[in-house]
Design a binder for these strands. Structure first.
Length: 467
RNA sequence: GGCCCCAUCGUCUAGGGGUUUAGGACGCAGCCCUCUCAAGGCUGAAACACGGGUUCGAAUCCCGUUGGGGCUACCA
């Protein structure tokens, strides 16, 4: 059997990490088995679907490197097909027109709830309010008292009682299919062999099976993967903060890291934490998927991204950093200088944005002193050190790490102080804070002029403060 | 409420009857390295939800309880 999977997002928002993981699982499954991975846009909710979301989802998929085969299928472009199939079911008496409005139904549901009853649509209401030309929905006739067996590749067999399922709508009054109908029809039409989707769809499985059976279509194999929960244990959603792939891209995460983190949420391969994409393709299988929901841990995600950051070819980091630097209003540094900054900062950051945000003092002399740091280190006796240091560094011909080290050594000799006593105040004078790469590296990257002016600035600062 | 799913450290997970003093990872704590911060290395604290079975033996199998989650739309 040819393996065909699909990712079927509805364009009602950015690509959510939960949806992204579903896409990743489908993609990995098909790629690892030499099958096809298709993309279908489920834009049957006219009110909520927007084209910009579709574009955003596609962009995220491309960014993650999830390539699909063939044309994108849009359900909104296939209205005729769903309509026809619905008509066919009506002709075969497997479905019928329902004239009861959604509002009326809502009212009845309310009432039933008040009485503590479970509301289920009854066929006898179908002619309620029927009139020529009046809009209607199409409902599937569901006979009660039957067992519907769902074979799930992750969970095993699940049995539903058809009595629990009302005659649900397959075609809305606006002529659009409902999710269940469109999905069942398209999965068959696109010859999807395996449907891998979130746990929250388990409940839809029997309905889609009913539709496929009514239509005489084959049924794809099903695999329901556990959901991703927020830190509060609830279904991950907008209120959990950064939850879209776009968001993480903008925060300076790498696509490989996003892929790696997401795939490990709910799937595992022994003890392994880090996977290249090639390894994932090689090692992925449905067997590794767990059954319980997982909590999205942004700290581990950050750590993983940092891991990738430390391993990544330098050029790629530099390339990614340039726009961020420019975006913050600084001129683009020379490649050599950027290379040095990146080499230092990649050890101290987790994301691309982190690198840039933590190295602002490399790009401007006009930075603020950290208040506590200034309090402690920009004091009278250190002013003398800055003067000596300025002298020693000024005389250095070749402004390299080793020669700078020598300059510091001479200051140490002249003052009788240890390196720490000199480096730390200098760090504050040069970077405004007590945290930075090694002081010789900082000095080298800054260059003679910036170092001189910053030391002078610190000396002035001390003076003005004492005045 | 009804239906469905799930249950190993705080979190992601390994383990699927004896190999287990339950392993790894994030996070946390300590130590080492060290000019600070990181990175890196080492060490530590930290879990089989509970109750019944089955079995010579159960984290592993079964049942129940409890807890959590999902769905309950002319949303997907």
């Amino acid at each position: 059997m040819k393996i065909v999977t699909r990712f079927a997002p509805s364009p009602t928002g950015a690509l959510h990490v939960g949806a992204a993981r579903t896409a990743i699982f489908n993609w990995l499954f098909s790629v690892s088995l030499g099958g096809d991975f298709l993309l279908r846009i489920e834009d049957t909710d006219r009110a909520r679907s927007e084209e910009r979301f579709e574009r955003q989802i596609i962009e995220s998929l491309e960014w993650l490197g999830l390539k699909w085969q063939g044309e994108i299928v849009r359900q909104s472009e296939r209205l005729d097909a769903y309509g026809q199939l619905a008509e066919q079911l009506i002709d075969e008496q497997k479905a019928y027109r329902c004239y009861v409005t959604a509002e009326e139904l809502g009212r009845r549901r309310e009432e039933a709830k008040k009485r503590g009853e479970v509301f289920r649509y009854r066929r006898e209401w179908s002619q309620l309010g029927a009139a020529p030309g009046k809009p209607y929905a199409v409902r599937l006739s569901v006979s009660s008292g039957e067992k519907i067996h769902v074979e799930d590749l992750v969970r095993g067999g699940i049995v539903f009682d058809s009595s629990e399922i009302e005659d649900f709508v397959i075609l809305k009054a606006d002529g659009f299919p409902t999710y269940n109908f469109a999905a069942a029809v398209d999965d068959a039409r696109m010859e999807i062999s395996h449907v891998i989707r979130g746990d929250d769809h388990i409940i839809n499985a029997p309905r889609q099976i009913l539709i496929a059976e009514a239509l005489g279509f084959g049924k794809p194999k099903l695999a329901h993967v556990p959901m991703i929960l927020g830190a509060d244990g609830k279904k991950l959603s907008k209120r959990h903060g950064a939850e879209s792939v776009t968001e993480y891209r903008l925060r300076g995460y790498f696509p490989e890291a996003v892929l790696n983190y997401l795939v490990r949420l709910g799937w595992s391969f022994g003890d392994q934490e880090i996977f290249t994409t090639e390894e994932l393709v090689e090692k992925f299988s449905l067997k590794g998927i767990g059954k319980s929901a997982s909590v999205f841990d942004s700290q581990k995600f950050l750590w993983l991204n940092g891991k990738y950051l430390r391993d990544m070819p330098e050029e790629r980091i530099s390339e990614g950093a340039i726009p961020l630097i420019v975006q913050r209003g600084f001129p683009e540094p020379s490649p050599e200088r950027l290379r040095k900054i990146v080499a230092q900062m990649r050890e101290r950051s987790e994301t691309l944005n982190g690198i840039v945000d933590q190295s602002l003092y490399f790009f401007t002399n006009d930075f603020e002193y950290d208040e506590k740091a200034a309090q402690k280190f920009l004091v009278e006796q250190n002013g003398e050190i800055f003067k000596l240091l300025a002298e020693e560094l000024h005389g250095i011909e070749d402004f390299s790490h080793d020669n700078i080290h020598g300059g510091f050594e001479r200051v140490m000799e002249r003052t009788g102080l240890g390196l720490g006593k000199i480096a730390q105040p200098s760090r504050v004078a040069l970077t405004g804070s007590t945290k930075s790469p090694g002081i010789f590296d900082v000095v080298e990257i800054l260059g003679r002029d910036a170092v001189a002016s910053r030391l002078a600035r610190a000396i002035d600062f001390i003076k003005s403060r004492n005045a």
